[in-house]
């Protein structure tokens, strides 16, 4: 290509990236400037084409030049990039895991799990699109309205919410009792008047009772024990967080296995409903673990600073 052709091609690539009203003017000016630069540099090279290539390399890539000519607007502000990445990855993981769970509890057990996960991808893309829209709107509002003055947030409590934990333990115990013997619970609540059919609806599958049931029960009891230990601890120490998180992840894996390895209840409707509820609990628990991990990380960093400065 001749030097003039190179300049024309370069200018075309730059102006294509500019707003329509700027293109003609920038094209005219850039062409003249580059021609002057090339003429000025021609003496230092074997020919005008070589000089042109050096000048264009020095000028920068068309995308960079167009950015300097225009006033590029970021859809997502740089300050929101990290948040976008965290929400995008967390959301994608939860949605894909949700797809896997859906495949596991599918009544047609021949379903390919890969296909089940693949069906979750449109939701992942929808989630990413929603994030772009939401953070784009946040950035747009931030640019248009003056930011409100910063207000301090109440510092996260260092102690343990004993009342909350105690209530949680109570609900855990009641829930465990109900799950261990749902028929007894129905008879107790109905005063023995519930029909046999209603009781049969909550009959566990024998295969579930052989292994999966006892393992889930063991983890439920373990959770109650851990909550009780936390309740009597003086403060929420790092080891408590790691034990709670590790145990929680293990429990979620066990629940996934429990609902994926076969029926839980004898009746199909009860089985599907129960598995659906457990799947939702798994996903919400994953989200809760992620939020608590982030909070712990931030609090730990602040506490490390406090300790180092005393």
């Amino acid at each position: 290509m001749t030097a003039d052709e190179l300049i024309e091609s370069y200018v075309a690539d730059v102006v294509m990236l500019l707003p329509r009203k700027q293109r003609r003017d920038v094209a005219l000016e850039l062409r003249a400037l580059l021609a002057d630069e090339v003429d000025g540099a021609a003496g230092r090279h074997e020919n005008r084409e070589a000089a042109c290539r050096e000048i264009l390399n020095g000028f920068g890539r068309p995308t960079e030049v167009a950015a300097r000519y225009g006033s590029p607007v970021a859809i997502i502000d740089p300050v929101d990039t990290r948040r976008f990445i965290i929400y995008a990855v967390s959301g994608a993981v939860i949605l894909l895991y949700g797809g896997l769970l859906r495949g596991l509890i599918d009544p047609q057990r021949g379903t390919n799990l890969n296909a089940a996960v693949d069906r979750a991808w449109p939701y992942v893309f929808g989630w990413l699109g929603f994030l772009v829209l939401a953070l784009g709107l946040v950035g747009w509002l931030r640019r248009r309205r003056p930011a409100p003055a910063w207000k301090p947030r109440p510092r996260l409590p260092e102690g343990i919410n004993r009342a909350g934990r105690a209530v949680g333990i109570a609900f855990f115990i009641i829930g465990t009792v109900v799950l261990v013997n749902p028929m007894w619970t129905i008879r107790f609540v109905s005063g023995g008047r519930a029909m046999q059919a209603a009781q049969d609806v909550f009959t566990y599958d024998d295969d579930f009772l052989r292994l999966r049931g006892p393992v889930v029960l063991g983890f439920l009891i373990g959770s109650i024990v851990i909550q009780a230990i936390i309740l009597v601890s003086r403060r929420y120490q790092p080891w408590i967080f790691w034990v709670e998180t590790g145990y929680g992840l293990g429990f979620l894996a066990v629940l996934t296995w429990a609902i994926g390895a076969g029926p839980v209840f004898v009746t199909d409707t009860t089985d599907q409903s129960a598995k659906g509820i457990v799947a939702l609990v798994i996903l919400l628990s994953l989200l809760d673990l992620a939020v608590r991990a982030r909070r712990f990380d931030a609090r730990h960093a602040v506490e490390a600073y406090d300790r180092s400065s005393t």
């Binding site: 400037l33 002057d36 920068g60």
Partner: peptide
């Protein structure tokens, strides 16, 4: 001054400046 002339003026004065920086700056 026009762009190239200005750049040469700055370079001769001891302030080298990249072409890709100067011209968009003028606009």
């Amino acid at each position: 001054r026009y762009g190239y002339e200005l750049r040469q003026c700055l370079v001769d004065g001891g302030m080298p400046i990249e072409e890709g920086t100067l011209y968009p700056l003028l606009r």
